[in-house]
Design a protein around this nucleic acid. Structure first.
Lengths: 353, 353
DNA sequence: CGGAGCTGAGTAACCAGTTTCTAACAGAGC
DNA sequence: GCTCTGTTAGAAACTGGTTACTCAGCTCCG
């Protein structure tokens, strides 16, 4: 049975009046309906697998769609359905492998539920992040903010516009916004205990971006530990979150006279390691270094990096679960705070006698 | 002048009949129009900065929009305008910093023209990439495929559906699809010349993903060089494109008896460097290693990596230019093939006597 | 043989915007 | 004072889909 170019149900002649200049050859549902000699409703039913269409009619519609290379407009579909089947993730720095693992976990979980992930990067810029967040949210059904740098007051003012919203490594106290985080306090305590155990008493902290709340967490704990242990001396050095900043800090680190370096994260630790190596400093002989996150290459540095591992993939996966619950009206799970696991590798050792 | 909750132009009562369950409190253009006592057309004009609205009316509309927290639906807007002001980028592996630089260049350039970038990752999977490409393209106004792993026949069959399309490190001969690429042949020749200059004659190539055309390019050139230089012996080792695969190849590299390693890219080189170090091999004393791409941390490895640098940011920026030309009907620029620049750092040295 | 029940497909309302056309009104010119 | 013209804003068509409602036609049963 061939295609009948039936006239019966032709939609009213398109006068192209209020229209927009647009590809006139583009296949739309109306064109397919005309070609198959059925109504738009029937085409829609066939395309969506409704069973209430006679097999022979359905075949004709499918043939027409095929012949015209028809693909339903996702835009129109989303508008009609009121959902895009898309969720967004915003991260401060895509270059940080930590966020990539989160991204993968989220993307995979979302994909398994038929949702696509859109990713945007704020480049550590809180202003840009706010704009991005609002816009990304408007184009999708839900939003995940990872390590948001948006200051608390703005975030608090914004969170209703962003819902359904899930936060990673961030929370808004007093609201119901689901939050998944890492216990940086515990991680830092483990690192400090490890270093103290090796006899280190003079530590230097390479601080991350000031807008990072997880940086604040680390700092608070370090100061508390320093205050609580007699003989423990802590120096703080403003650094950043990248190789470059870590590398650039090497000389300043040496100047502090510290015997161990607690870096904001693995990238900074790696940069510092490289910088110190260039200065002829042996690690861990002269100086111990720790990172944080356990990004993939941490175990391949020379020497392999002692760091605190966090469940990045799991953060992404559970972020999806919370978001999905929110979107489908179910109660989201309880907030979770993951405990980092100290991985002792070879950048830490006994303090030099 | 306050808000008049005028009734005059109220749109016909919404019977919620054909409708979808949806947030009934959501601010729409109709609601704003009602609140301001004007028509939807007027609200639209005000929101888009049309000057043909009386200032006092415009103010009333703005006040109403403000009061209702109105934000135009990007979906509806895109549908009506026939454009989304969004472009998509698909990469095989977001974890590769090389793609991040491309991403940044593209994102920045697109942003400067009021366009947003959506990113998706194919995980080196050609099947997934095809699906992603089609879907991403349908949600945006244009598409950039970076180092596409889609086999030539499929890509050729697909390229019209994907237009406007720009390819990075890939081309479809005989079509008008703009393509920006890196001259891997030249890069490899430079690397080989450098190694031969140091006296190396036995080289091993750590091959990248088989689906990567740039891997094929490298391989072709290496074989040609080997065939053309008497005494030049080449071994090929299947590897991959990540730290892990490079690391895992270390033992096999040693077994070849080669004096120099040409790695597919910097990540593989880094992994191999780490693996060799663990085996007690000194670089470049016993073995020289080269990478490719010059990703940010290449200069921070121990020792810093000799590699071929490519203009990643520029690839992204020019990809936008080509795409923008395509979208606005202008002639895209000529295809360009960028010449890598050899960066001699410290992982290469004279062959051991 | 007629009415109830079921099935299948069309009609039209709807999503939330933009834009063309048109009508009302005001001011200018004769 | 009347017509012509220019502005302004509303009505309605349009983007491309989905779906509630309706109705025609068939089957089945009393």
């Amino acid at each position: 049975m061939g295609l009948e170019m039936g006239d019966t149900h032709r939609s009213k002649p398109r006068s192209r009046r209020g229209g927009v200049r647009r590809d006139p050859a583009a296949a739309t549902i109306s064109r397919v309906a005309d070609a198959a000699g059925v109504s738009r409703a029937t085409v829609s039913r066939v395309m969506n697998g409704s069973t209430t269409v006679a097999p022979e009619l359905a075949a004709r519609v499918r043939a027409a769609a095929e012949a015209l290379n028809y693909e339903p407009s996702l835009l129109a579909r989303s508008l009609a359905l009121g959902r895009t089947s898309t969720v967004s993730l915003i991260v401060p720095d895509l270059a940080n492998p930590m966020f990539q693992d989160i991204l993968r976990g989220l993307s995979t979980a979302a994909g398994a539920h038929g949702h696509r992930l859109m990713v945007a990067e704020s480049n550590e810029n809180a202003e840009a992040e706010q704009i991005l967040a609002v816009e990304a949210r408007r184009r999708s059904d839900g939003l995940v903010l990872a390590s948001s740098r948006i200051p608390e007051p703005q975030l608090r003012a914004l969170h209703e516009r962003l819902a359904p919203l899930v936060l990673l490594n961030r929370e808004i106290p007093g609201t119901a916004v689901p939050s998944l985080s890492v216990d940086y306090h515990a991680g830092i305590r483990a690192i400090v205990a490890h270093l103290l155990g090796y006899g280190h008493r003079r530590l230097v902290y390479l601080a991350g971006p000031p807008a990072s709340t997880s940086n604040t967490d680390r700092l608070v704990t370090l100061r508390a530990e320093a205050a609580g242990s007699p003989g423990f001396h802590l120096t703080e050095l403003d650094c950043g979150s990248t190789f470059e900043t870590g590398h650039a800090a090497a000389r300043a680190v040496l100047a502090t006279g510290a015997t161990a370096v607690v870096a904001f994260n693995d990238m900074v630790a790696f940069g510092a390691l490289s910088g110190l190596h260039e200065l002829g400093v042996s690690v861990p002989g002269q100086l111990s270094i720790t990172g944080f996150d356990d990004i993939p290459f941490a175990r391949y540095t020379t020497p392999p990096l002692t760091t605190a591992s966090i469940p990045k993939n799991e953060l992404g996966r559970q972020a999806w679960e919370r978001l999905w619950a929110l979107m489908s009206g179910a109660p989201p799970g309880y907030d979770a705070r993951f405990q980092p696991r100290l991985l002792v590798r070879d950048t830490t050792g006994p303090v030099r006698a």
